[in-house]
């Protein structure tokens, strides 16, 4: 095979691989592109540009996200955060144009849907007192939830430890999964293994650093 033919073969192989990447990430990419465009609109508002048409087009294109429920909570939170900021910046009041009021009502609609689809859970505890606390009975829901989580993490560990020779290799792969797939189970399991290793005298600083990075990506819910 000539050098040109080899290069053409390699070119075709690399293009096929990248096509496959785009295909697999299509859905995520569409969401990310939508968020990115909304972010750009937010920046335009900051610079005093009239964004009425831009945001109108954005809503027209992305309203289906609400009905399809394709967004993850983190993505929805990001979008509603951006929309709320835009609403604050364009200062909509009774004297605003019809178009601005329409934008305002669309933003409110998104926010109300968000509240509907992703309720905020508030944990409350009674005020502290000097009298001894009453003995709390175990909450069966939290226990069963934890047991379920533990069993999922055990299955995950068995999956990842298969064919590995050392727990550090398992940890590396789990941290990778936590970062790239924003997997909560992988994140918690990685933290658990790191603590186990620390208790057994391993140097865990590089893994703690990776865990923190994975946690940041998990919170962002992107990539």
């Amino acid at each position: 095979m000539s050098q040109t033919a080899s290069l053409q073969s390699l070119e075709s192989l690399l293009e096929t691989f990248l096509d496959r990447v785009v295909f697999l990430k299509e859905k995520k990419l569409n969401v990310l592109d939508g968020i990115n465009r909304l972010d750009d609109i937010g920046a335009m508002v900051n610079s005093g540009t009239d964004v009425t048409d831009d945001i109108g087009n954005w809503f027209a294109e992305h309203n289906k996200w609400l009905s399809d429920r394709t967004l993850k909570d983190t993505e929805l939170n990001r979008i509603t955060g951006m929309l709320s900021k835009i609403k604050r910046e364009i200062k909509i009041d009774a004297d605003s144009s019809m178009a601005h009021q329409k934008i305002s009502s669309e933003i409110d609609r998104w926010n109300s849907k968000k509240e509907h689809t992703a309720p905020i859970i508030k944990l409350k505890r009674p005020p502290e007192t000097v009298t001894p606390e009453p003995v709390l009975t175990p909450n069966s829901d939290t226990i069963s939830l934890f047991v379920k989580r533990l069993s999922k993490m055990t299955a995950l560990f068995m999956d990842y430890s298969n064919s590995k020779n050392h727990i550090l290799s398992v940890l590396e792969d789990l941290l990778q999964k936590a970062s790239t797939e924003t997997s909560k189970d992988a994140l918690i399991l990685s933290a658990f293994i790191i603590y186990y290793l620390k208790q057994n005298g391993y140097k865990v600083e590089p893994y703690v650093r990776k865990l923190k990075e994975a946690e940041t990506l998990y919170k962002k819910g992107m990539f």
Binding site: V22, K25, L29, L32, D33, N36, D39, M222, F223
Partner: peptide, 10 residues
């Protein structure tokens, strides 16, 4: 970084 990653994938 996120904007650039998004632009790269697009």
């Amino acid at each position: 970084g996120e904007k650039a990653y998004c632009a790269a994938l697009l």
